[in-house]
Write a protein that binds this DNA or RNA. Sequence first.
DNA 1: GCGTCCCCTAAGCGCTTGCTCAGGTTCGCG
DNA 2: CGCGAACCTGAGCAAGCGCTTAGGGGACGC
Lengths: 207, 207
Amino acid sequence: MSTAEETDGENTPWSEVTPEAARRLLVAAVEAFAERGYHATTTRDIAGRAGMSPAALYIHYKTKEELLHRISRIGHDRALLLLETAADGDGTAAERLAGAVRAFVRWHAERHTTARVVQYELEALSEEHRAEIVELRRKSDAAVRRIISEGVRTGEFDVPDVPGTTLAVLSLCIDVARWFNAQGSRTPDEVGTLYADLVLRMVGPRK
Amino acid sequence: MSTAEETDGENTPWSEVTPEAARRLLVAAVEAFAERGYHATTTRDIAGRAGMSPAALYIHYKTKEELLHRISRIGHDRALLLLETAADGDGTAAERLAGAVRAFVRWHAERHTTARVVQYELEALSEEHRAEIVELRRKSDAAVRRIISEGVRTGEFDVPDVPGTTLAVLSLCIDVARWFNAQGSRTPDEVGTLYADLVLRMVGPRK
DNA sequence: GCGTCCCCTAAGCGCTTGCTCAGGTTCGCG
DNA sequence: CGCGAACCTGAGCAAGCGCTTAGGGGACGC
């Protein structure tokens, strides 16, 4: 099930989750939520994967939903950082758009376990938590729109419907989390490159 | 919550579900599964929406999973029909690809309630049922690939990676079910037209 | 009128769920 | 050695789950 260095979430991420036991629980929850979905995952399953009793979970998290929120929050922060870094970097609009798509797609493929939870379990969040997350997603949308708008302004891009195309670009990248399979034939890098090319075609006249 | 003629599943579909009570239950299940997800939906909720007692469900369906399977099967049949009709129609490859995308996207937007269940609840199916559904999805992929391959053959399209682009096109369309909102500003028709244009840009040099 | 069939419900069974709580173990520190 | 803090467990509670069962009630043929 593991190709030496992956599985997701091992090499650095989740380093912000500080008591080590809390991190083990969170990583276990990511795996379980990604495999079966939030509602089909039991607290006993999460605790078991982390090698603890069910009660241990409630020392570090108030509820099962808080676990999901922590995962979702960290994942959205990471995704937003990727997009804003690309949007506010330098280079032409085309270069920045390609960079944003490549980074965003690569993240969704490499960390597809995490990304699946982040992108497809929003409705399991409480009202307040969901509102907080939706705000982060609005910012992600704004970052991509910023690049596309500027490309249109400078004449690099030919995009009749900027909000619609922004939505489509993000949607295309996000859906990678759904279909990407680590056992499949494509590496995250290959998918990122393919998608960057496809998106550039979507926004512009032949370069 | 309803804009006169929509909600989804009222004007004709589900006509193949024959005892009228069974159809009412199935429509209720589609709504509930789409709102909360399969695992978060209770049989009591489904029966309640259909105006029946929980026990009534088991007269028409053996299990809750059978309900999901019936929904998934009918939805996949419909989606496959749309794609194959477009793929095997006449016209240039570009015309057929645009037609396929427009029809497929429009279905995902108009019937986004159904489509959400069809596209995002696969892993809740039993092993055998999932295998049956996966086969239908393979055929959908083949239909789109057929159009793109032919466009490449005739020189209409410039596509370096046919399987990858096929995957991206389908992925883009499918994800409409996730974000489309009937209260939003775009009609299913507008999204279909926008997406058909974007996909044509993805596959080729300006026509 | 009577029996048969179909469709449905009230009640509830056995089990699992999210979560709690009293208590035990391990540790650093005086 | 004693003491408190940090962390974890075994046992279990109340609630809700999917599903079953016994039986009611209306429509129909005879």
